[in-house]
Design a protein around this nucleic acid. Structure first.
Length: 426
RNA sequence: CGGAGUGUGGUGUAACGGCUAACAUGUCUGGUUUGGGACCAGAUGACUCCGGGUUCGAAUCCCGGCACUCCGACCA
């Protein structure tokens, strides 16, 4: 893509109403635009990153579930059935604009913060026999939560992207087996987006659903809101909320010896048991024609939050730094040609065309800006590799190539550049 | 949901209760320039968040609302 055609611009000044690193940098670089507290537009550059993350998540989830998309609007009665209409205080309700109050409005709906209330009836319609189980559905979709205090840019929003997966099983053992498999798949996701080394499976409270623990995936990062007790040796962590004497005995862990770190929850999995299947009267017929309870699990990852965490984790003083797997482009090509029709300009155009045709995702800075402005923008946007074409570089025999995370650059020949990004290059 | 703070051109800031609300940046014109956010000239752009009040006079003081930020509570 040509940068002259990119309809967003970078900004020198940080927005006055943002404090968090991810919100400041993503706004300055033109990846997101704030609509209100905790609600952001993903601009073209930001959407590219979000899509990359979601595609990675999708690819891994396809191995353990079937993708669908449920609506964001849901009937209140579904929430009444599970008792969550009253207990979940982040529920957002819609109200037709021509109605003066919710009481006068018969048609007010819930904007879903999660989808157990929708997926359970769906599953119960299609999986009524032991032959149909286990079954798992997932979706990647926008969620709504009326956070009392939205904050920290993409880390805690009122509207955000979520991948939610739900599994249905004929007994607890089968759920357990699947649950363990999901853990592995989750770690693969975090490894692929570049957070593998800093993300730990963390025991957390199971909430209302179960006396057992749920499992969070916590990424160690300063901007994180959670405190976890990290056991690096055993590659496991404990959320502060479960750190107490009782659990110390139960788990045979001495919490005192563990490292306390700030972390951000990038994923969470819950064994739901029969709570939702019972609420919706969902049973299946076993081999002997007897009705049996269905066991459920749910599994979440927030791609938009993940984008925020990746930003926080890797950005430096100059700007964003994207891991290759989620970068909006893989290469930032910068032309420093003085004249439009110069050899240098033509060479840059040629490189852009060839690499793009070969399937390389190139952002081509073809603007008429000063070298300094282009470099500053390039650092801010954070594409992993920068390639400069200039009179100087051509004199030295090619193009200057520099990794975003490195200070030093080197000159390589144009042939060498093509060879490096070969893949489908001829 | 409790506590604190803030609200001024697109963006970032300034302005004692007192002149036509200032500066930077951005944007547009023209010129010049091109290896780390260049320079010159001109132009553009604000009912100072909304509603009330005090005052001869309010961006400035008071009351109410809304929004945003921070701390805490909360967070399937």
């Amino acid at each position: 893509m040509r940068q002259s055609q990119l309809y967003t611009k970078t900004r020198k000044e940080a927005p006055a109403d943002e404090v968090s690193k991810n919100a400041i940098l993503l706004t300055r670089a033109g990846f997101i635009h704030k609509e209100m507290a905790g609600v952001y537009t993903f601009l073209p550059l930001g959407l590219r990153v979000l899509k990359k993350i979601e595609d990675i998540v999708r690819r891994h989830m396809d191995a353990i579930g079937n993708e669908l998309v449920m609506p964001s609007l849901s009937l209140r009665e579904n929430w009444e059935k599970t008792g969550r209409l009253e207990t979940v205080d982040v529920l957002m309700k819609t109200m037709p604009a021509n109605k003066v109050s919710e009481e006068k409005s018969s048609n007010s709906y819930i904007l879903c913060p999660t989808h157990e209330e929708l997926i359970t009836p769906i599953a119960s319609e299609y999986a009524r026999s032991y032959k149909d189980l286990p079954i798992a559905f997932y979706q990647i979709q926008t969620k709504f939560r009326n956070e009392a205090r939205a904050k920290s840019g993409l880390l805690r929003g009122r509207e955000f992207r979520m991948k939610d997966l739900y599994s249905f099983h004929k007994d607890e053992a089968d759920l357990q087996k699947y649950y363990e498999e999901a853990k592995k798949v989750y770690m693969n996701v975090f490894r692929e987006v570049g957070l593998g080394e800093d993300t730990f499976i963390t025991l957390a409270s199971g909430g209302d659903f179960t006396k057992d623990f749920s499992h969070e995936f916590q990424t160690v990062v300063d901007a994180g809101e959670d405190i976890i007790y990290l056991d690096r040796k055993n590659n496991i962590a404990y959320n502060k909320e479960v750190v107490n004497e009782e659990n110390a005995k139960r788990l045979n862990v001495d919490f005192e010896t563990l490292e306390q770190v700030k972390a951000c929850e990038v994923g969470n999995i819950f064994p739901l048991g029969t709570k939702f299947s019972k609420a919706f009267d969902y049973t299946y017929m076993d081999e002997e024609g007897k009705k049996q309870d269905v066991y459920m699990g749910c599994y979440g990852i927030g791609p938009s939050r993940l984008m925020g965490v990746i930003t926080e984790k890797f950005a430096d003083v100059k700007g964003l730094v994207w891991p290759a797997s989620v970068a909006p482009f893989s290469l930032h090509l910068i032309s420093l040609a003085k004249e439009k029709d110069s050899e240098t300009a033509k060479t840059a155009e040629d490189i852009y065309t060839k690499l793009t045709n070969a399937g390389v995702e190139v952002l081509f800075d073809d603007r008429n800006e000063s070298a300094g402005a282009k470099f500053a923008d390039s650092d801010l946007i954070g594409i992993p590799m920068r390639v400069v074409v200039s009179d100087k570089s051509l004199e030295k025999g090619g193009v200057e190539i520099k990794e975003r995370t490195k200070e030093e650059s080197e000159i390589i020949s144009i042939e060498e550049l093509f060879a490096t990004y070969k893949k489908n290059c001829e």
